[in-house]
Nucleic acid binder design. Structure first.
Length: 575
RNA sequence: CGGGGUAUAGCGCAGUCUGGCUAGCGCAUUUGGUUUGGGACCAAAGGGUCGCAGGUUCGAAUCCUGCUACCCCGACCA
């Protein structure tokens, strides 16, 4: 490919609103262009990268016996009504009507569609287990797209679905899928990706893992132990907290004028936040109040609480609703909460501590020396605490480290949630109808590309791993009008293309600095510089992206030498 | 959905407060010339519904009202 014809201009300045490195570089390098919020066009360079990522994914999916299919983006609502998700999913599901008034939707995931397909095509235990996958467009009407390709509304995803007779078969396959994912991320050159325990959320099912590309710009918070033996999303992360109790002291009402927050109260009374307890009120989707109590130095982990309560939605209760329940916002006391009307969930940090300062349920007053067993007694004791940086690891006891991650893939053991609701059955060895057990496995393709940049760049641009680089080699012809440089460059270009190398040839005759800067933004791992300086001796310069030192190679040996280096580079990413 | 911000040439911005002649600057683009190892220089040229609609005014990019789009923080997120 000639640079003079390549569509996608490079831009000198950072785009005004971009925050993440990948967003800036994808725009500046001419890889992507925004069309609407969270909706992008892919230009030739990005398209080539994406094709390569997809090729690697395809290869690994095929290796674990996947069969590629292609399902529609537009689905009839009735399919999603069958699974119940048409109504249970919020506005991120884009619903619309066709001209006949039939309810349709843009698929954000394909469990329903794949079950629809499979339940008529697979009816016998002899056909199981089976895995279908596709690489296809998804649409999610995100409330807020952000970070370039990190969070978008329309994107390409590889989604795979496996079907099994038994849980054991699912678990065995899940392990294979896990390994395939590790292979994929290694092969696309993602340097730092962790599989972590995650929250299963709306997908249903119990066991799930997220593959997190560790990056500052990540939207998820994850916790890892120093040896990485423990890795979990903050949504479900636990820690080996130890709580200390001491001899119980009598309740004592104290005046705390205007001190509402934990910091204010603790400051005022000259105690630490860990000697206080706080009460947080939530409402579920029906508006029912839930009272969560936790030690003052912790935050309630809403995912944990939600999982425990088995509710789809939790919001903070309004002051009005809290007052209606007979409590005083800011000074709420768990003792005033009516047990029979309001569900009380108490974190272990409160249940196992003693003599805490809590609200007295009237303005400007708190109680000292609250003791859970004595003063509240009956409540559900659950871990609803959010892990903090440095909290002790549940496995090793070492301090947990907080990291940010971009979720580039996930794998779920779905169980029978969809197959049961949608009657996806097969006949077993005894001729009896059985429900299939499912797993599902996703990878965000564009997000993976952005994540590779996040982990592999310098101030000049991305540094693509050879496995997904848009081209393998970048040729810069300096001063092409001089001393036959142009002619030699053309010859070398043709020869290297003939040798099977993917070459991007900068034939524009720009100034050296200009070309080098463009080349850096394109981030191809290897570069050849043809110039009058070395051409006289029959040599060209060869260098790796990001390195200062160039090596001289004789033109006569160029194709062989370059091919050798490139093949060696590929081997670094194979398993 | 809540909070904040922005909208003027392909990109980045000035001009708006305090209304006034032909709406500017840098980059990019085209042409000619000089250059050529990390974003060159000179000269010329093309490119604008000043986000949209309405209003005030002799006169609106500028003031007023409404709307829309985009970005950031939060909520949400298989």
């Amino acid at each position: 490919m000639r640079m003079s014809k390549l569509v996608g201009r490079r831009i000198k300045e950072d785009p005004k609103d971009a925050v993440t490195v990948s967003h800036k570089l994808l725009i500046r390098g001419g890889y992507i262009r925004p069309v609407a919020a969270g909706i992008y066009s892919m230009l030739p360079l990005a398209k080539r990268i994406i094709d390569k990522i997809e090729g690697i994914i395809r290869d690994e999916m095929n290796k674990i016996d996947g069969q590629e299919v292609l399902m529609p983006v537009v689905l009839p609502a009735e399919l999603w009504e069958e699974s119940g998700r048409y109504n249970s999913i919020g506005q991120e599901l884009l619903r619309f009507e066709d001209r006949g008034g039939k309810k349709m939707l843009l698929a954000m995931t394909h469990e329903e569609a794949v079950v629809h397909l499979l339940r008529t095509e697979v009816n016998s235990y002899k056909q199981l287990p089976v895995m279908l996958y596709q690489i296809q467009t998804k649409y999610r009407d995100e409330a807020r797209a952000r970070g370039g390709l990190i969070r978008v509304r329309e994107f390409t995803m590889k989604d795979a679905y496996s079907f099994h007779q038994t849980q054991e078969s699912l678990e065995e396959y899940y392990q294979r899928a896990h390994q395939a994912y590790e292979n994929i991320f290694k092969r696309i050159g993602m340097k730092n990706v962790l599989s972590i325990e995650s929250n299963s959320g709306m997908m249903g099912g119990k066991v799930s893992h997220e593959f997190m590309a560790v990056a500052e710009s990540g939207e998820d918070t994850i916790f890892v132990s120093p040896d990485y033996s423990y890795r979990a999303n903050r949504e479900i992360a636990v820690a080996a907290w130890k709580f200390e109790s001491s001899a119980e002291v009598e309740l004592d009402k104290v005046h705390t004028p205007g001190k509402e927050s934990i910091e204010e109260v603790a400051d005022f009374l000259g105690i630490k936040a860990e000697n206080t307890g706080k009460v947080v009120f939530y409402q579920d989707e029906q508006g029912k109040l839930i009272c969560a109590m936790i030690r003052g130095d912790f935050d309630v982990n809403e995912s944990k609480l939600q999982n425990h309560l088995q509710v789809a939605e939790l919001t903070f209760a309004t002051d009005e609703a809290i007052r209606k329940a007979g409590c005083e916002p800011g000074f709420a006391s768990p003792m005033a909460v009516k047990h029979d009307e309001i569900r009380i969930v108490v974190d272990r940090s409160v249940a196992e501590s003693s003599n805490l300062v809590v609200g007295a349920n009237e303005p400007d007053y708190h109680y000292k020396n609250f003791n859970f067993a004595r003063d509240l007694g009956e409540a559900e004791i659950v871990d609803i605490a959010t892990v903090r940086n440095g909290d002790p690891c549940p496995l090793t006891g070492e301090p947990l480290q907080e990291l940010r991650g971009i979720e580039v893939g996930n794998i779920f053991q779905l169980g029978t949630k969809y197959s049961e609701a949608m009657n996806c059955t097969y006949l077993d060895q005894n001729g009896k109808s059985q429900t299939m057990i499912m797993g599902c496995y996703g990878i965000g393709v564009g997000r993976s590309m952005a994540s590779v940049i996040e982990q592999s760049n310098d101030k000049w641009g991305p540094i693509w791993p050879i496995t997904i680089a848009p081209y393998e080699l970048h040729i810069c012809a300096l001063n092409p009008k001089r001393d036959g440089v142009g002619e030699s460059a053309e010859k070398i270009y043709a020869e290297l293309v003939d040798a099977g190398i993917e070459v991007l040839f900068d034939d524009r005759g720009e100034k050296a600095g200009f070309m080098f800067n463009d080349a850096d933004l394109i981030g191809i791992p290897f570069r050849i510089i043809i110039s009058p300086k070395t051409l006289a001796e029959g040599m060209v310069e060869f260098k790796r992206r990001g390195e200062k030192e160039a090596k001289l190679i004789a033109i006569t040996e160029l194709a062989t030498a370059v091919n050798e280096v490139i093949r060696a580079e590929y081997r670094k990413f194979s398993d």
